[in-house]
């Protein structure tokens, strides 16, 4: 795949003020997204992972300007022109949203219960001033693409199962044929047996319609399955960015390693691989000095709490934010075993 960037995020920051007291004085800022830079290439899927509070959802919302970014540029290379989403006017945003749409996590709260499916899906078209007749026709066209029959058009969200609702959300995102789709935890609210259907659908749609995805999730096995490249975030910072192979097989940041090691493997004869990271994510209001991960890092040294590391290029597009990325050997099973393995029964 030739690497043509479709989205370039440069030094994106979003600080939420924290207000206390009667006069609502600002006592500090939560640095939800702090100086994040990455590029998404045409036709690829970029996975964005991290624990709750790491800022991945705020990044998604900044990309669509559902929250106002404080600093940085978000360049969207459209078919005819390039937009800077961070400073685009209302009129330009209308064009931007024709090129980029979002799928939300919870299909139970992201659909208006009073709207019929056809109105839900047609809403982006209405915003683009498409006529009602044309909109209705395009809704009927898109329903089979997401695996729903035409009879779904007149139903209400409460008549649908979780999987069907998420198909409606996907149809709503795709109705304006955007080349870029941001999916924020699209499967985590779904039943196990339905989850794989929706992942298959997203994969299918990507190859059929040549879509580009920014795929946000906390389930690393799913991110690994669907993504070409992966960005790992911790406390508002990007700590590692690389191809799926680089991040999963050759990771260089101790946090990425810890995250990968805490993935539970669905095999009862392999209970020894899990590693337990001590402690919890510190408060984003008052992150540790230096490297934000230094308080939990098993390799932390003096330099780590004194000086914040830069995001550095390790070659082949593999970026790591760690002072000791070259020296650390994370390939070994450096961590203690978690559970004893049961013997095969009988």
């Amino acid at each position: 795949m030739p690497d043509t960037p479709i989205l370039q995020v440069e030094n994106l920051s979003k600080f939420f003020p924290v207000q206390r007291g009667l006069l609502r004085r600002t006592v500090g800022h939560v640095k939800a997204v702090n100086d994040v830079t990455f590029t998404v290439n045409k036709g690829e899927c970029l996975g964005l992972v991290g624990e709750s509070g790491c800022g991945k959802t705020t990044v998604a919302r900044c990309l669509l300007r559902l929250v106002e970014p404080d600093q940085g540029r978000i360049l969207l290379h459209g078919e005819r022109q390039t937009f800077d989403i961070a400073s685009a006017s209302r009129k330009e945003m209308l064009d931007v949203r024709r090129q980029m749409q979002i799928i939300f996590q919870d299909p139970f709260s992201s659909l208006d219960p009073r709207w019929r499916v056809t109105d839900v899906i047609a809403e982006p078209l209405m915003a683009q001033k498409v006529g009602r007749g044309e909109a209705g026709r395009r809704v009927l066209e898109i329903l089979p693409t997401v695996g729903l029959g035409p009879h779904f058009a007149d139903r209400f969200p409460h008549e649908l199962s979780g999987g069907e609702r998420q198909r409606v959300s996907i149809a709503r995102a795709l109705i304006v044929s955007p080349p870029l789709v941001v999916a924020d935890e699209p499967v985590s609210a779904l039943d196990v047996s339905v989850r794989s259907q929706i992942i298959n659908l997203l994969l299918d749609l990507q190859s059929q319609m040549n879509l580009t995805y920014v795929f946000i999730a906390h389930d690393l096995s799913i991110v690994k399955h669907i993504s070409h490249r992966i960005a790992v975030m911790y406390l508002g910072r990007l700590v590692e960015l690389g191809t799926t192979q680089q991040v999963f097989e050759e990771c260089k940041h101790p946090y990425t390693k810890a995250l990968l090691a805490s993935v539970l493997i669905p095999d009862p004869t392999h209970r020894e691989q899990s590693y337990v990271l001590e402690g919890e994510v510190p408060s984003p209001l008052n992150p540790p000095s230096g490297c934000h991960f230094s308080t939990r890092c098993p390799f932390a040294q003096e330099q780590c709490s004194a000086e914040e590391p830069e995001l550095r290029d390790m070659g082949d597009g593999h970026w790591v934010r760690c002072h000791f990325a070259e020296e650390l050997d994370l390939s070994e099973e450096i961590f203690a075993p978690q559970f004893d393995t049961p013997t095969a029964s009988n």
Partner: peptide, 11 residues
Amino acid sequence: LDVTIQAQILR
């Protein structure tokens, strides 16, 4: 819970 906390609680 998050994955790293899940691992702690299960252990």
